[in-house]
Design a protein around this nucleic acid. Structure first.
Lengths: 192, 192
DNA sequence: GTCTATATTTGGATAGAC
DNA sequence: GTCTATCCAAATATAGAC
């Protein structure tokens, strides 16, 4: 178990969480220093005891969020399954991991379309890339999948996840059957 | 042929174009009234002769951009084609229309992740919805396509376009064969 | 480490001359 | 319709007491 947080560390975490929440709810432009400090329940000046600037705070929050969601999605996936079934289950697992953290997802989407994203670097999605690459290799070896470039297959795999999630955040509720149909369609795009 | 633009209409168009360019290049937060007016080559006060507010300007620019891209993509598409071939050509046409104006695409992405998107109301996206809906109906009637909800099929259709374009804007160049393979995969997701 | 108070800059928007 | 000049509010960041 981790050490208990010092007061300072707790404040730092509260600030990142507050920033993430505000961006997810009201957009990047709403994440002012006043709003963040207010949401975190601390004074505005306190923010600058923990971060050099507002931008640094947002970047730190983004990096931490990515790490957390990735840990969440990576657990419990069986790599010995037949590739088609494995693709469908993996797709669903990632979808559900994001769905369980919708604020994190929304924050990530908005942050990555802001000018700050360029300053961040953006190597966080590489874990997904590796997963797709492994899956692709297994499916090509078994004769199930088309031999297409990994980044192309990766796009066909990930893109519907973000679109369906955005629809959910606007109020659309996908049934289990619809999610399964979506996974089927993604699979169909990979099959020979 | 259209009437020549009055001076006022030309200024209005210049302002929208300037806003779009700045957002595409430097993000929503860079699109200040000063920056937009400067880029358009007019005074800041002039902006308010043509738009009630900066937000209204951005929304107008977004709507016009969407309309242009879809007009562009919609020309020369034969609706009497067999649905599968029609889907592939439509997908390609939209992809190419966006690729021909990457700034418009980048602007659209950033705008739609901003808080302003909610104020826009989704009016701009309705053209896509209509197109997808028509295509779906034709393909279900002919027995080619799965009977899935239009918004689900729409997501499966549009999502890869945005992913592939974002990859291109980061330097990846898709060959014609790869684009065709992508269109095939999208089609496969729709087929029964 | 956190607060209150404040300095400084920038942004959106308006007034009024031409 | 456009420009110059300006107002006002809000935003980032800092100073200094506790």
């Amino acid at each position: 178990m981790a050490h208990p947080l010092t007061a300072g560390q707790a404040t730092r975490a509260k600030l990142m969480q507050a920033a993430s929440l505000i961006v997810a709810r009201d957009g990047m432009e709403a994440a002012t220093t006043a709003a963040i400090a207010g949401e975190a329940g601390v004074a505005e000046g306190t923010l600058y005891r923990h971060f050099e600037s507002k931008d640094d705070l947002l970047i730190a929050a983004y990096r931490q969020m990515k790490q957390e969601v990735f840990l969440d999605a990576g657990t419990g996936l069986d790599t010995s399954m037949a590739p088609p079934e494995r693709l469908k289950r993996t797709w669903r697992a990632i979808y559900l991991a994001y769905r369980a953290n919708k604020d994190a997802f929304a924050f990530g989407q908005r942050f990555s379309e802001s000018a700050l994203a360029e300053r961040e670097g953006g190597e966080a999605g590489r874990a997904v890339g590796r997963m797709v690459s492994d899956l692709r290799k297994a499916g090509i070896a078994s004769g199930d999948f088309k031999n297409l470039p990994p980044d192309l297959l990766g796009s066909l795999f990930m893109a519907p996840i973000t679109y369906l999630l955005k629809a959910e955040m606007k109020g659309r509720k996908w049934t289990d059957a619809e999610l399964d149909a979506a996974a089927d369609s993604v699979l169909a795009g990979w099959l020979r």
